[in-house]
């Protein structure tokens, strides 16, 4: 039994059961929770956090942290919005440009950590200010709004991506579910994924096994920040406007969701499914508290407590197995 309890699968199962219990409790106690419109709203709200949590998961598993993800959200959102508004670029190209912005940010983060050998916390703290600064510079501190009167196609496209629905199902939710599957495959079924786990678990041992740990780390950051950029694009789409302060604090939301989902800050442990479950737990909890009229101050306290409880539970489980 102990063997099973220690396995990643058990960890995931315990998180899934928490999610289900939370769902059932909210369904039974909270008026309006189980309504289709409310559930799809949750998915829509969770979409951005989930996408960021996916990315953060890559970086956490490789044994690093990314404090700049929130700034990348803002920067990529502004880049896409500016291209749409001022340069009449097609919406698809604008999105791709946003994602490339994310890739460049991830590459810079990775280089700071692997070649300049700065610890990830400090390196990404530094880049988070740089990226946010660039974002405010090019946005001139103002929101970049795409008006349907000026850019009808772009505005329509953003509306579909941000808050559109297919058969009642939010497009943004479809994006993060398909993305989750694809990223899961990358993490568990490719050599890159294997290398990420090996590097995060013991970097030196991975290096001496012939794994290029620098390249692996840089790739993990590129994945993370491309996903953060996608989060930024989704926000811009939702608001039909690029905000220079968009994404502030989202890196911590992403880390929290990943950790609640069982991703280890020590590296080498965790999964995309876990990150998704973590994001859903947070999203559902917020929604349930809202519907019950609990104010946002109390919501913060509850979410913080859930985070601490989740980590304490893991440590307790590990100790029990350890002795």
């Amino acid at each position: 039994m102990n063997k099973i309890k220690n396995s990643p699968f058990f960890k995931l199962l315990s998180r899934l059961s928490v999610l289900i219990i939370l769902f059932v409790v909210l369904a039974l106690t909270t008026h309006n929770f189980i309504k289709l419109s409310n559930l799809t709203t949750i998915l829509l709200q969770v979409a951005i956090y989930a996408v960021i949590a996916y990315g953060v998961t890559f970086v956490l598993i490789v044994g690093a942290t990314d404090l700049s993800a929130g700034s990348v959200v803002g920067l990529a959102g502004i880049v896409s919005a500016l291209l749409l508004r001022d340069y009449a670029v097609s919406p698809v190209m604008a999105i791709i440009a946003g994602l490339i912005t994310g890739a460049v940010c991830g590459f810079l983060n990775g280089v700071c950590i692997t070649y300049l050998k700065i610890i990830p916390f400090v390196a990404t703290l530094g880049t988070s200010w740089i990226f946010r600064g660039v974002c405010q510079l090019i946005g001139d501190g103002q929101p970049v709004t795409i008006r349907s009167s000026e850019n009808p196609t772009a505005a329509e496209f953003l509306k579909v991506l941000g808050s559109g629905r297919i058969g009642g199902f939010p497009v943004a939710a479809i994006v993060f579910i398909i993305l989750g599957l694809a990223l899961s495959v990358i993490l568990s079924k490719t050599v890159l994924g294997r290398n990420i786990y090996a590097t995060g678990s013991n970097q030196e041992s991975a290096r001496l096994s012939g794994i290029n740990v620098r390249r692996t780390t840089i790739y993990a950051f590129i994945v993370c920040d491309v996903l953060a950029a996608l989060g930024g694009v989704l926000i811009t789409a939702r608001l039909s406007s690029g905000q220079v302060s968009a994404g502030t604090g989202y890196e911590l939301e992403g880390i929290a969701a990943a950790v609640i989902g069982g991703v280890s800050l020590m590296g080498g442990e965790g999964s995309i499914a876990g990150a998704l479950i973590g994001a859903l737990i947070m999203g559902m909890l917020r929604n349930g508290l809202n519907l019950n009229g609990i104010n946002s101050y109390w919501q913060q306290i509850v979410i913080g407590a859930v985070l601490i409880f989740a980590v304490a539970f893991d440590l307790f489980q590990r100790r029990k197995v350890g002795t």
Partner: peptide
């Protein structure tokens, strides 16, 4: 390596992931 715990193994990964680490 001379120190299997420090740099020979990824202690928190399982047997399969360690054995195959040189040839994923």
């Amino acid at each position: 390596t001379d120190d299997r715990k420090q740099n020979g193994l990824a202690l928190r990964l399982d047997v399969e992931k360690n054995i195959n680490m040189t040839c994923y």
